[in-house]
């Protein structure tokens, strides 16, 4: 465990806490894409199946359990508790365009042609694009609450921090994970536009608004 990865994981944890904080304080899921949240549940469930047969560390198991339960809880909040504040009519990204290619890619690129390894690969590819419905929704509405943008920034920072972690592991531990690295770079790149507006507007105290 190096610091990049630790800070990356902490950023991921912070993003989920920010998301829950946003929902609880505004008592609303407005501005959040249900599709993105449902994709994250899929990502965590397919990747963390190894909880049942592969022990890495207590830290690892606790984090995995937290990510699965919290993401399911967010779905519950969106579909049940705060359902009236959810607006599916602006959450229009076609997720089948993401799921199909991810299935295909995981069948081609995996470390072993086993059910568990293909699912792992699938989850890596799916995570890299899971944020797209959310970013698409942001693009459509053109604005967002500050707290929602902090959530997205923490989520993007988590992915960005994994890149120096991989560079560190390559040089210091002689470890490389080409599938995770490729997908991780794609995932981080998707946040570039968002980060530009976040740094130039939200962190300067202005509203998150996209140019018309």
């Amino acid at each position: 465990m190096n610091l990049f990865r630790l800070f990356g994981d902490m950023s991921h944890l912070a993003s989920i806490l920010l998301l829950l904080y946003k929902i609880q304080t505004t008592r609303s899921v407005r501005g959040l894409s249900f599709k993105t949240q449902a994709l994250y549940v899929t990502v965590f469930v397919t990747r963390y199946l190894d909880l049942f047969y592969d022990y890495v560390s207590l830290y690892n198991s606790v984090m995995k359990t937290f990510f699965i339960t919290s993401s399911c809880y967010v779905l519950y909040l969106m579909k049940k508790k705060y359902r009236p504040t959810n607006d599916p009519s602006i959450d229009t990204f076609r997720v089948e365009y993401l799921l199909g290619p991810c299935v295909l890619l995981s069948l081609i690129f995996n470390y072993r042609f086993t059910f568990a390894e293909i699912l792992w690969s699938f989850s890596i590819f799916l995570e890299s694009v899971a944020i797209l419905p959310q970013l698409f929704m942001l693009q459509r509405t053109g604005e967002a609450e500050a707290i929602t943008t902090h959530y997205l920034a923490a989520l993007g920072a988590y992915r960005a921090l994994y890149i120096p972690n991989w560079i560190y592991r390559y040089w210091m531990e002689d470890q490389v994970d080409p599938i995770a690295v490729t997908a991780g770079i794609v995932q981080t790149a998707l946040y570039v536009d968002f980060f530009y507006v976040y740094f130039t507007k939200v962190l300067q105290g202005q509203r998150f608004e996209l140019p018309a």
Partner: peptide, 10 residues
Amino acid sequence: DPVETKHDEL
């Protein structure tokens, strides 16, 4: 040469 990682990341 670097070896492939175990799945020890989150």
